[in-house]
Every structure is written in structure tokens, then in C-alpha cells.
Write a protein that binds this DNA or RNA. Structure first.
Length: 236
RNA sequence: CUACCACAACCUG
């Protein structure tokens, strides 16, 4: 069962959903992780409807198999991508019934779902109710403000997470803040943010470097963009 | 064994 599960997950990550499905269907035995992995494979490859389909099948076919935290947090981003909150609300309801709605990962996924569906106040309410916010919680709310184009709010939250909660921003935080910097071609903010991440030793991985190249380019500073570009270890 | 936040460019709408 374990190898089967691992294979399903692996094929999913490689984008070979057909193989993931083939392994899954041929498994003589399945546990909760098998179903979660299959849902996840579909989700990673954009097959939203089949996510819900598999989920339904799991509830119908497998007696006594109860969704766990992983099931919920796998399903929620799919709901978010659907645009409407209907499915999200259903999953939220299940989380409450199953007593998982206070789990940090579930809360994080829920607020992200609400914000992506345009229900910002719902999202913020959940954010406020989380007592032990982690970096993902903050990244989600910052991403939400940043998508709205709320520059002030984004920076305020960015400061607050560090002052109030002493939570260290990570590379994803930076990637979330960056778009509001260059929406007005604000070279200065991009530079500041860049300096900030270097100073704080935020792991300058490939993604982050690429984001800065793009940001500088959008601000019209080809020189800075080149500078980052040539400093990279890996270029794709 | 699975699972929460981020992910280029281009084109079209």
C-alpha cells in the first residue's frame, strides 16, 4: 500500500496523472493516504472536477473512511480555484463537523480559499481567530492584500508580522509582497525589498531571483535585472 | 507513504 501511495503521489508531481490513476485503480488495498494522494494528483494538474469526483467516491465506496486534515487541505485549494465559494463552504462545513476547523493548516487553507473567492472579510475573520499564526497564515493574508493591490495594507501586515509576532518572513512572503512594489513601477520599493531579503539571509533560491529579475525589468531597470541575473547560480 | 501560503515569458479574451 505504501509503495502504491508513493507512486500515485510521485506520478502526480511529475504531471503524469494517467499513470497515477492507473496505479490507484489497480491497488488491491487502499487507505486514506491513497485517496488523499489521488485527489492531490488531480489537484496538482488542474483536474478540479475529478478531485471532487474521487472525493465523493471515497465517501461512498469506503465505509468508515473519514476525511482527515490532509484531505481537507488538499481539497480547499481546488475549491478556491473554482471561483465560487459553494464547494468551499461545503468543505468548511465538513471541517467543522469533523472538528478539524481549529487545526492551523485547515484554517490557513480556509482563509486562502475565502480570499481567492473574493470573500475578504470571511478570510480576515478566520485569520483573526487563529491564535497561533505561523508564517503561512501571514503569507496568506499578505497575498490576499497584495492581490487586491492594497499596497499600504500589504506593507503594514509585513511589518506587523515581524513586530507583533516575531515571525520571520520567508521567501514566499517576499514573493507575495513584490507585486505591489512594481505595480506602479516603484523601483525604490523593489530595491528596498531586495536589500531586505539579502540582509535577512532569506534563502535566495531560484524562484526569488527570477522574481527580482522580472520585477526590475518591469520597473525599467535593465541594469539591475542583469545584475541579479548574472549573479544567479542556476539559470533556466 | 499523502497534505496549507509563492511560482517566469508570450499570446488571446
Amino acid at each position: 500500500v505504501f509503495v502504491g501511495n508513493a507512486l500515485v503521489a510521485m506520478y502526480g508531481k511529475q504531471g503524469i496523472v494517467v499513470d497515477a490513476l492507473r496505479v490507484f485503480e489497480n491497488m488491491p488495498e487502499r487507505n486514506l493516504v491513497s485517496w488523499n494522494s489521488m485527489i492531490c494528483s488531480f489537484s496538482e494538474n488542474g483536474f478540479s472536477n475529478e478531485c471532487f469526483g474521487v472525493f465523493r467516491r471515497m465517501l461512498l465506496e469506503e465505509e468508515g473512511l473519514v476525511p482527515d486534515v490532509a484531505t481537507l487541505v488538499t481539497l480547499l485549494p481546488v475549491c478556491a480555484g473554482e471561483g465560487g465559494i459553494d464547494m468551499g463552504a461545503v468543505v468548511h462545513g465538513m471541517a467543522v463537523k469533523l472538528g478539524h476547523c481549529d487545526e492551523l493548516m485547515v484554517s490557513n487553507a480556509l482563509m486562502d480559499t475565502y480570499s481567492k473567492c473574493g470573500l475578504w472579510s470571511e478570510s480576515e475573520i478566520i485569520f483573526c481567530m487563529i491564535k497561533n499564526k505561523n508564517v503561512v497564515s501571514w503569507n496568506s493574508i499578505i497575498g490576499s492584500y497584495s492581490r487586491e493591490g492594497n499596497k499600504r495594507g500589504t506593507f503594514e501586515l509585513f511589518m506587523r508580522m515581524q513586530m507583533e509576532e516575531k515571525i520571520r518572513p520567508n521567501e514566499i512572503t517576499i514573493l507575495n509582497v513584490l507585486p505591489v512594489c512594481f505595480e506602479n513601477s516603484e523601483m525604490m520599493s523593489v530595491k528596498e525589498l531586495h536589500c531586505y531579503s539579502l540582509r535577512n539571509g532569506i534563502q535566495s533560491d531560484e524562484m526569488l531571483a527570477n522574481a527580482f529579475v522580472a520585477a526590475y525589468a518591469k520597473c525599467g531597470s535593465t541594469r539591475s535585472a542583469e545584475h541579479v541575473f548574472y549573479g544567479m547560480e542556476v539559470r533556466t
